[in-house]
Simulated scan of single mutants.
Amino acid sequence: MSGFLEKRMLRKSVERWAALADHAGSLPAQEVQELQRTARRLRRKLDLFVASAEAGLIPDGQSEILRPDQCDWAWRPDPWTAPRAPSGVVEVPSPHKLTDSVTLFHDCARSEITLRQTRNTDPSVSSAFGLLLDVYRFDGSFLSLVLSLPDAAISGITRNHYFSLRARVIRENPIEIYARLNIQHGPNTEQMVRQLDLSDDVGLAEFDLAYSNINEKRVEKAWIDLIFDNPAMNQVQLTDLTLTRAPRADL
């Protein structure tokens, strides 16, 4: 913890930068340029500190996940568990990698898409963070978030398993959202598409692998495409998103 002198130095530093901001217009151009470079370096350090400090106050993002009976794997992806720096991006390019496990894709010639991480304050929401997606004019044919599932999701997988994707979604205007599970097994990729069944802003999509043709011994990786249909002039907030795996109940 900082002592008295350290706290005083930090306070004086804040006061000094505030005074410089007030008089920036009267300073010589060369001095302003040097101060700008220093301020940018300082801002990056401050952003990292804020992100680290928030991370220390955030509960385990893998707890409080709704799990079905006999659930053997559960996951809440990083954007919903850990702070990002920077927290927002405008004119989002494609592909845009949010984390190692989540990437946004689109095919717009000109991106009018804004993506921002938000902090959840609703006590009924288990995740620490959410994602806010703003789409204005949209001249592309697709917009999707790709969730790359970790190795644990496919370890020991069989056709007796099913995956469940749950999401809390707040939409400015009605929009259909689809989830496509992709499982690569050997040279083949099995695909299963489900519409996210939204009721009271809570969506569910389930994938029963009994209806697939996967080769259980050759599964290499899996990912889910979360596809937004006709997203133009809309705001979609994904306040939470979780995935689980469980064996089907014996009939």
Rank of each mutant, 00 (worst) to 15 (best):
F228C: 08
L133P: 03
D139A: 02
R116C: 12
N160Y: 05
Y136A: 15
N160S: 10
F207K: 07
V135A: 01
S126D: 07
N120Y: 03
Q191S: 14
Y211E: 15
V219M: 13
R218W: 13
M233N: 15
S111D: 06
F105M: 06
H106F: 04
N188M: 13
S124E: 13
P123N: 01
Y211L: 15
D197M: 06
L131D: 03
H185C: 00
A232D: 11
F142C: 00
G140T: 05
L204T: 07
S127E: 09
C108T: 10
L204E: 09
Y211V: 09
P150Q: 00
S144L: 12
K217T: 12
F228V: 10
D134G: 14
D208T: 04
G130L: 03
Q191L: 12
D134Q: 15
P174G: 00
N120H: 03
S148H: 10
P231N: 05
R110C: 07
C108M: 10
S212C: 00
N182R: 04
S124K: 13
I177E: 03
E220R: 14
V135W: 01
V193C: 07
T158F: 00
R218G: 05
E220V: 09
P231L: 01
S141C: 12
F138W: 04
L131M: 08
A167E: 10
I177L: 05
F138L: 06
R110K: 11
S155T: 15
H106M: 06
I227V: 14
D134A: 15
G186I: 00
L133C: 02
D107C: 07
Q195I: 04
D151P: 08
D122G: 05
W223F: 08
E172F: 15
T189V: 11
R218C: 10
K217Y: 10
V169K: 03
L198T: 00
M233A: 14
N160T: 01
G203Y: 04
R110D: 03
L145W: 06
V125H: 08
D201G: 07
Q184T: 14
P123Y: 05
F129D: 00
G130N: 04
Q195T: 06
E112A: 15
L149F: 00
L196G: 02
K217M: 11
D201F: 08
M233W: 15
E190P: 11
A210F: 02
F129L: 03
F105P: 09
D201M: 11
R218L: 14
T158V: 00
S141N: 09
R218A: 14
H161T: 04
S164F: 01
T118C: 05
E176H: 12
L104W: 00
A210N: 09
D200Q: 13
L147K: 05
V146K: 09
N230S: 11
D122Q: 01
D139C: 02
Q184V: 12
N215H: 12
M192Q: 14
V169E: 02
G203P: 02
I177Q: 03
R194W: 04
V219L: 14
V125W: 03
Q117G: 00
N213D: 15
E176S: 14
R194Y: 01
G203D: 06
F228S: 07
H106V: 08
L165W: 01
D229I: 15
R116P: 07
F105I: 04
W223P: 05
P231K: 03
L104H: 03
D229G: 09
G156H: 01
S199T: 10
E176N: 14
T158H: 07
E112D: 15
T158N: 10
